[in-house]
Design a protein around this nucleic acid. Structure first.
Length: 275
DNA sequence: ACAGGATCCTGGGGGC
DNA sequence: TGCCCCCAGGATCCTG
């Protein structure tokens, strides 16, 4: 489900539902293996804490608690985080339940289990966690010099570079393809070969596409998105993603798909010619 | 340093 | 209806 616009939508939906709410019991509902299972002690410590903040960083969701501890959640490919009435039926693959006051529950569901839920005793630890992972800046208002230098420093293709979370955090397969189309650049083009103009075009395209997608509450493909279950709308505006064989919105040439960086990459062969 | 592939998972869709 | 294969919004690890 989630790239930056979808995660931002989830956070915006959840924030008003979670702010100032007090956590009750925290329960693990499945016995399957998880990437980074919460320790029982952490689940106990969360009980009675009030939720102070709900934020996003890249594709991560940060839930800050009243004791300055923090829940860090990544939705991976199929993760869902929703607030539901406690008596709502539990869907399969619901791994965690966080009881809230007023009979509601925050539920974490993840079919493919590529996501993770982690707990940090001190919120500060997350910053070092991110810097240790080399997570790049948010993709808005990125310093053009930083952007240019990062692109010049690698011989990888643009698709791989955009998916690399150390350039900027939050771009995934959909928005990489859409941004490359908007910038009229071929996904296989080598990053270090971009002219200064092309580099700047790409930086702005990433920003523009993500902002527009957030306005449309992200993209809904297979499942729905959003902490309140509302669908996204940006899929209506896809220029290339998932549009193989359909006409390019600019020149009507059929969109093609090729594999780069191990991911399906959709582009217009005429508007985005190989260099 | 990096490309490419495999890996972690489940489920849906298409072809036969 | 069933089976097999491929595909999927992510990230990481290994090999060459």
């Amino acid at each position: 489900m989630p790239e930056l616009p979808e995660v931002e939508t989830v956070v915006r939906d959840l924030r008003p539902l979670l702010m100032q709410r007090t956590l009750g019991r925290v329960e693990r509902l499945t016995s399957v293996s998880l990437r980074r299972p919460l320790e029982p002690r952490a689940m106990e410590l969360m009980m009675g804490r009030t939720i102070w903040e709900v934020n996003r960083r890249g594709k991560w969701i940060l839930i800050k608690l009243s004791d300055e501890s923090l829940l860090l959640i990544h939705l991976g490919m199929t993760g869902q985080l929703r607030v539901v009435p406690g008596d709502a039926p539990r869907e399969s693959h619901t791994h965690y339940l966080f009881a809230l006051d007023a009979g509601q529950e925050l539920r974490y569901r993840d079919i493919r289990r590529f996501g993770s839920v982690q707990w940090f005793a001190e919120a500060d630890q997350v910053q070092s966690y991110f810097s240790h992972q080399g997570i790049g800046p948010e993709p808005f208002g990125v310093d053009p010099h930083y952007w240019r230098d990062k692109l010049l420093a690698t011989r990888r293709n643009l698709k791989a570079t955009l998916l690399d979370q150390t350039l900027v955090a939050g771009v995934g397969n959909i928005y990489a393809d859409e941004a490359l189309f908007a910038a009229r650049l071929h996904p296989a083009q080598r990053s270090c070969d971009l002219s200064p103009t092309e580099s700047e075009r790409l930086r702005l395209a990433v920003e523009t596409v993500l902002i527009r997608a957030i306005e449309k509450r992200g993209s809904t493909i297979r499942d729905y998105v959003g902490g309140s279950g509302l669908m996204g709308g940006f899929q209506e505006e896809f220029a290339v993603y998932g549009r193989t064989g359909q006409p390019c919105p600019h020149c009507t040439t059929p969109i093609v798909v090729e594999r780069y960086a191990g991911r399906s990459s959709h582009f217009c062969p005429k508007c985005q010619p190989p260099s």
